[in-house]
């Protein structure tokens, strides 16, 4: 089921040929690329925060 649905998703993105590269792409992630990603993503100007306060407290 998941395989079939994944094929459909990738084909819709015109990327069916890349469906078997998913694990490789994860494998290619390095400690450095994670740090770079975090550095550019986790900045205040890129942050939206929602706080839900409980009425019961």
């Amino acid at each position: 089921m998941n395989r079939v649905m994944n094929i459909a998703f990738f084909e819709m993105m015109d990327k069916a040929g890349e469906i078997n590269d998913e694990l490789k792409k994860y494998d290619a992630v390095s400690a450095e690329s994670i740090q770079q990603f975090c550095k550019k993503t986790f900045v205040k100007n890129n942050l939206s925060t929602l706080f839900i306060k409980s009425k019961n407290e």
């Binding site: 993503t41 100007n45 939206s48 706080f51 839900i52 009425k55 019961n56 407290e57």
Partner: peptide, 22 residues
């Protein structure tokens, strides 16, 4: 996005909750 955004609401929920989205 160019600026930090924040929304606070009160709801009938069991506990306070925070969602930080990038």
């Amino acid at each position: 996005q160019q600026e930090e955004r924040e929304l606070k609401v009160e709801r009938d929920v069991p506990a306070d909750a925070v969602y930080m989205v990038f």
